[in-house]
Amino acid sequence: MRKLIEFQNIVKSFNDSLVLKGINLSIHENEFVTLLGPSGCGKTTLLRILGGFISQNEGHVYFDDIEISNVPPYKREINTVFQRYALFPHMNVFDNVAFGLRIKKQDKNTIEQKVKKMLKLVNLEGYEDRPVTLLSGGQQQRVAIARALVNEPMVLLLDEPLGALDLKLRKEMQIELKKIQQEVGITFIYVTHDQEEALTMSDTIVVMNAGEIQQIGTPTDIYNEPENRFVADFIGESNILEGVMLEDYKVKFDDQVFECIDYGFEDNLEVDIVLRPEDIDIVPIEMGRIKGVIKSSLFKGVHFEVVVETPYREWIIHTTDKVEVDKEVGLHFFPEDIHIMYKMGTY
């Protein structure tokens, strides 16, 4: 795929606090990219720089290999779905969606056709004459998407667009957004703090924290191969522990040596280790590699969340089997379930 957008060493500060500390990132055509991170990590700032609403202190933004830092937002081939939709309250659904086309002075029939087609895409046929202020949150959301997409931008920016919706609607919209993106075939850049949303929709996830990119990768990469403790902790629930990489394929933690599949670390390097709760099995005590006592078991709908206490720590384990509290058990996992990461700041 062709490279469409490139951020080069973007630095941005607000009132002496550094929000972006030198971001380098390439985004390709037709890609669904999610900028994921906790609030204040700089993800929205990066999006707004691309949209042209604020300008960076240092660095360059390239769009189709052309530097666009000095191009005003109304001349960029990028459209945005705003956090609170920013629909024009004095216009009805049709006029909102037609706004960009009218600015471009397209003829009446074309506008009508394009708006109708777009409203159909977002499932809002027949809503043309409704005042936008009387629509529900989900409907407003769809109008905002239609209003942006109707301009046939090369890139659509979405700034936490589902944040204001309730859980059920959010799930529906996730699927629908992905469907729309595949249908129109353009690049979506999506900002969210919701890891589940990111995992569901994205082709590429960019995990950010404190103004820096922590990891770029596919959802499976990010989940299975987190590069550091922050990513492992932010994406999904994890057992994160400290250990020492004795040599290739051998790691020591909790005073035991375990076989693993990672290699290429320095010998005797202190590392962080991730074990996902669903990768650990509860087995009879004699079959376990680690022994502990079950502290608690909470039913979570699909699985039980079990806490097992060992002399070193408490493990979180997801299992579909019902277990007895206070029972002594063994914990079992395979070498490929152990994931070794460099400690933050050492790579």
Binding site: G51, G52, Y74, F82, A86, G100, I103, N151
Partner: peptide, 19 residues
């Protein structure tokens, strides 16, 4: 007036006067 509305208008291609 919500600043986002002005941003939205710029985003949709309207220059400051049109906005």
């Amino acid at each position: 007036l919500d600043r986002a509305l002005i941003h939205a208008s710029h985003d949709l291609g309207a220059n400051p006067i049109q906005t």
